[in-house]
Design a protein around this nucleic acid. Structure first.
Lengths: 336, 336
DNA sequence: TTGAAAGCGGTACCAT
DNA sequence: ATGGTACCGCTTTCAA
């Protein structure tokens, strides 16, 4: 690999001059620039990001910490972040925390050593202390799909609580008289918010009982057990609001196994709006978040912060939208 | 951020000594080491990877180039690579090529500038020239899920052609008399291999005709059109081998729309073995690849190459396995 | 066993 | 408009 000195020598100028043309900074004669450019081309010179990094420049790295890249919601988020990052010449570190606190702590450490310029975190279990350490080092952080009350962070999320209310209302409007909820992990903000939204609506009814709630892991695995528990306690439920689409998928599967028909016997509504909800039989009603846009927005905000074009914290909350599928197409009470 | 000099000063030793204890290289007195260690702890010192990189050390970066992170097959691959990388203290750059040659070329360039230590590429459309340039720089490359004949690269993949034959045989055994194929993009090796496998089997039959093949994009989108085309040309097909599971999902969806029953009217078999095939109604028969293992193996090979523990090229080919789902459970000819 | 100093490949300030 | 040069933070001879 040729270095800047090679280029300087070949062009018959100083390294300072070459640096100037690379960075388009300072004055440099048109003819000189041409010579330098030519030399760079000829040698196939590529300035080392590492060296520039050491010399005080940005490395153009951003890190993306996710709980689980194999969840379609997060892989779509990742795709969006990656797209925007590349548009702005940033490379993204993929950090799969697997909901493991240790892994995450380890990442934080590594990322600091590697001079990341910014961080997007969308993980369930992170330690606020760790994040603070970034702020102390003036490294911008954007929090995605989580809602920390704490000031000083920029946040991108969608209206989880409101979305949950939408879901439950929808089930009610479609004739459900006893609605259970398989929640996300209660250690996650989104899991809690959606549970609150569910409670907001159902607590007004006489049939409501806390045992209508079962905690899931936002994954397909385990949602079958959760459903079994619910059915055991309440054989008469006729509607289920799942905390996310993956769990709704699992529920659909398990209901089928139990010989229950959807939506005739039990209606199902999910949350997220991943594409799979459109592929099942029946298709699944879900509260859709603008996933790609959320990821893209987070990445844009981060890039702006890194460039110093925008400081301070801000909250960006996306609207959610109920997408009607077949899994709730039963006898209506109203609105039809 | 404290630097090595701060540590040296605090411990009352030279930077060289501190460096030695960090790298566990050279001689250093036990007591001295203790002092240094203490100073490092006290200052919460984290050596800068960037600086070490400049000074000739590995950055502990590997890059993963994928065509589409939102395809579950690739997100699972990514998860595996990331897991193994983290175990070995490597960070992974996520590069989503989107099947776009320009994006990919751009990545190659960026990656070289950023001193990646190794590269795993699993993209459809890459330019061999670009990859060669890595080899010229002695940067290890592992090719995942692609089959380049070219010597000099290590490759991890599974038996695509054999798998395709398995699929078609399975369809035949389950009573199919006219089997169509929705292939992957023919510019991809996997797409071609699976097509060859299909042809290997069907060309022996009198009903076979090249118009039983329709090219898809390995995505849900477009598989509906492909199916429509096939049905128009051959209304009598009773079996479909889809080049991957995503397309099988799309096919299932479209068949339903067309009022055709699976497997009664038409049997369907996919390829990959992503989890979704187990969630549909009916579940989808598929030729499963050991996805996670493939990713993990590729990452392990790459790490070994980076460490110089293993040189030269090698081929690692995984076995595939037909997983029977409901989408082919129709009247059997034999084996039942 | 420890320290001094020369890089690694750039950037940026200060002269000229 | 260009060149000289002192860093950036760490590694690694080479001496002491």
């Amino acid at each position: 690999m040729p270095t800047i000195r090679d280029v300087a020598k070949m062009a018959g100028v100083s390294v300072a001059t070459v640096s100037r043309v690379i960075n388009q900074s300072g004055y440099v004669n048109t003819k000189t620039r041409a010579k330098v450019l030519h030399a760079m081309k000829h040698l196939n010179y590529k300035p080392s990001t590492v060296a520039r990094g050491l010399a005080g420049k940005k490395m153009h790295f951003i890190a993306l910490i996710l709980p689980d890249i194999s969840n379609p919601f997060f892989s779509e988020l990742a795709r969006a972040v990656e797209d925007v990052a590349q548009q702005h010449d940033f490379t993204v570190f993929l950090c799969n925390s697997d909901n493991d606190d240790n892994k995450e702590a380890n990442y934080i450490e590594v990322l600091k050593k590697k001079n990341v310029d910014g961080l997007i975190i969308s993980s369930n279990t992170f330690n606020e202390k760790d994040i603070e350490s970034f702020r102390d080092d003036k490294i911008p952080v954007v929090i995605l799909d989580r809602s920390i009350i704490n000031e000083g962070y920029s946040i991108v999320r969608s209206k989880n609580r409101e979305g949950a209310r939408l879901a439950v209302h929808h089930l009610l409007e479609h004739g459900c008289r006893k609605i259970a909820h398989i929640s996300g992990p209660q250690k996650t903000d989104t899991g809690r918010e959606r549970l609150y939204g569910y409670e907001d609506v159902v607590k007004l009814f006489s049939w409501y009982d806390p045992t209508l709630i079962e905690e899931g892991q936002f994954q397909i695995e385990g949602s079958d057990i959760a459903l079994q528990n619910l059915l055991r306690r309440h054989p008469d439920i006729d509607g289920i609001f799942a905390g996310n689409d993956l769990m709704a998928l699992g529920v659909l599967k398990e209901l089928r196994k139990q010989g229950l028909r959807v939506p005739t016997d039990i209606a199902v509504c999910g949350f997220d709006g991943i594409m799979l909800t459109k592929l099942t039989q029946p298709t699944i009603t879900t509260v859709a978040q603008p996933i790609y846009q959320m990821g893209a927005k987070a990445a844009k905000m981060l890039v702006q912060k890194i460039r110093g074009e925008q400081t301070g914290s801000q909250l960006f909350e996306f609207e959610v939208k109920l997408i009607e599928g077949e899994s709730t197409q039963r006898n209506h009470c109203k609105n039809s």
